[in-house]
Design a protein around this nucleic acid. Structure first.
Ligand code: FES
Ligand code: FES
Lengths: 145, 145
DNA sequence: ATAATAAAGGATAATATTGTCCTTTATTAT
DNA sequence: ATAATAAAGGACAATATTATCCTTTATTAT
């Protein structure tokens, strides 16, 4: 479905939204450990998510780290996928035709389209904050074991 | 979603199911042209699908080529994906956790699960023959332009 | 001001995927 | 039997993804 990079991105943002604030920033090592991802690969991903404060924010130096603003917490899970450059998935032909369209539908199109719409709708409506709140209940997980 | 290899596999099988029979076999060049895929890469994919006649069948030599039996036409679209080695997608955690489970759910699990179930159900119930029949109507496509 | 800190960014390596080419093997028509 | 044909299979090249390491830059505490 998603690339490893996007999977790590989603889990990292959820963790940052759950544990961080502008006062309480999180370091790379802490994040990579929390989501069980390779540290330096995760660094690249966080860099991408930080670019132009699109999703998360960062500060360098002592007591620096990553955090997320209340405004950014209202963004959708879909927007994370899009910043990671995989938004194409949300309107791609399931059989790999160049474009999914009503004019040139593949033989899966009619049946696949409503399912994809539910999928897109979920990712579009679910906010980062909602994910973080679920995590606070203690009955959901973003790492293995 | 699926790899290029699986996308080509799905399109190729649909084409073979539409156009071939044990009397009327299809050559590699013809298939690759029909689905707009790189010829030699497609050869590898057809080889995989032919192994143990899991999905399609083949005969070498003059008047040889690829075809599909009536029995195989009853197989599901899901089974093609599985032979291509990507069946994992059908029960994978959307956030990339090692295993998707009720015991260790990720924060997307509860909302994602019913959508995935619809997705799996579509691929499991849709047969190769049904796809081929849709193609016969002339209003569906498996290549670009 | 200086030193310590932590992210940013560049370079590179390892691996997987996609794609191409060439030789071998099986089959069939002659 | 022989030659022609078409898939099978092995080898390899190009590209993309995943992962690691090292240097630079910004920030903060002292
Ligand atoms: S054309 Fe294939 S999913 Fe729409
Ligand atoms: S645990 Fe993530 S989808 Fe089930």
């Amino acid at each position: 479905m998603f690339s490893k990079a996007t999977e790590y991105a989603l889990r990292a943002v959820i963790f940052i939204a759950q544990k961080s604030s502008e006062q309480q920033k999180l370091g790379l090592a802490e994040i990579a450990d929390a989501i069980h991802s390779p540290q330096f690969f995760t660094a690249k991903i966080l860099q991408k998510l930080t670019l132009h404060n699109q999703v998360i924010s960062s500060v360098r130096g002592p007591n620096g780290g990553f955090y997320i603003t209340d405004a950014a917490k209202q963004k959708s899970v879909k927007s994370i996928v899009e910043v990671m450059g995989e938004g194409e998935l949300f309107d791609k032909c399931v059989l790999g035709l160049n474009r999914c369209s009503e004019k040139n539908p593949c033989p899966m199109h009619d049946q696949y389209k409503p399912i994809r719409e539910d999928f897109v709708s979920l990712f579009d409506h679910q906010t980062i904050e909602e994910m973080a709140q679920e995590m606070n209940s203690g009955s959901f997980f973003i790492r293995n074991e």
